[in-house]
Computed example of a mutant assay.
Amino acid sequence: MRAMTVNSRPNLRQIAVELGLSVTTVSRALKDGPEVHPETTQRVKAAAAAAGYVPNLHGRALRMGLTRTLTAILPMETRNYLSDIAKLPLIEGMTMAARERGYSLSVYSTTPEEDPQDNLSRLIQAGGADGIVITRMVSEDPRIPFLLERSIPFIAFGRSGSAFSYPYVDVDNASIAFEATRELLAKGCRRIALQLLNRGDQYSAARLAGYARAMTEAGAQVDEALIGHEDFTMEASEGWISRLLDIDEPPTGLVCANELGLLGALGATRRKGLVVGRDFHIAVRDNTHMCRYLSVPLTAHSVDMAHVGRCLVEGLITRIEQPDAPFTQVVVPGEMQQVIGV
């Protein structure tokens, strides 16, 4: 094969001429088109790699009418400065997946009290994004039909129980809460507290359903007084657990909302003179792997949130570039482990 012109950017036509193929064949081979013979595809890819060929994403974007920009709407959990630490792996996964596909990602951050529908409408009116990641799903979320009716590419982080079919990536929160509760029951806990976050979102609804199923199957009573709905900062968690430990029949176990809820719960049990792992048992959702650095025995569920972020962006790009393709619908499980601590 002859060398490409020095200092020129190789293009499909040059590769086609060098290999004696049509531009169409070269283009299809680089996309692994089934109509191209595998040996030809291999030759084309080898020639493209040797020549340093890079797809002209800008030109492709112009042809498709794209800005190659994605936006993820990520509400802050609370106004506590540590509350969103678990979002960092999610943002990392989304950012890396977007970059690898030639897109950029912007994060549209909102406060907890803002209306999700209003935020979405403002974002769409502003324009500038090819697709949107929506989060904090609620039952029968109105944003789903709103986006579907307008043919706006989107993907949801979570399921809403909607009658509409739509693209989503979700974490199996019901199974995680079920397994966590069952583990505490196996440790002898019969009075188990459950931390939830926002009352209306599907994340909390799924966790409550899993918890209730495990309690019911074990013949244990579900006591509404042991179920907390708060913005569980460390301080809020410590206060709530402290109050529960003062009632006549206090809990001996806790299914914790997140790492911040865990830190607050550890503070409360320490103040009451309880030893975690002996007098009080905790199961926690631990996406940051913080638990392994705490000197207490815990049951921890971890989810690869960077993988979740990648799945969200890859599913969204599929909606943008292949609007007739089947919807991405992925449920990511959690991995349970017993953490002894350092």
Rank of each mutant, 00 (worst) to 15 (best):
R278C: 06
G188N: 07
A306R: 14
G65M: 15
G59R: 00
G59P: 14
R292H: 09
S175H: 14
T299W: 11
T233A: 01
R207T: 09
A29V: 01
R271F: 01
N11L: 02
Y166Q: 12
V255A: 06
R319P: 13
G334C: 04
V308P: 15
M290K: 05
D32N: 11
L57T: 00
A268T: 02
M234R: 15
L66V: 00
L266P: 08
Y53D: 08
Q338A: 12
G264E: 05
R159H: 01
K45R: 15
A186K: 07
L148E: 00
A214D: 12
I317G: 05
V342W: 12
S237F: 14
I73W: 06
Q14D: 07
E321H: 04
Q329P: 03
E217M: 13
L147C: 01
T25F: 03
R28D: 08
R60G: 12
V26F: 03
Q14E: 06
Y103M: 03
F280Q: 03
I155W: 02
Y81Q: 10
L312T: 11
S165I: 07
R63Y: 08
G200T: 10
Q125M: 05
G334T: 07
L244H: 09
A86S: 13
T328M: 06
S160N: 00
C256V: 02
L260A: 02
M64R: 15
G334W: 00
F154W: 11
E149S: 14
V138Y: 10
G277L: 00
M96Y: 05
D246C: 14
Q338E: 13
L312H: 03
G65T: 14
D141N: 08
A126G: 07
S27E: 02
A220S: 15
A156D: 13
S160A: 12
Q14K: 01
L226E: 13
R310F: 01
G309V: 01
L196S: 08
T24P: 14
V303A: 06
R243G: 09
E314K: 08
S165A: 11
V276H: 09
L266H: 03
R28F: 00
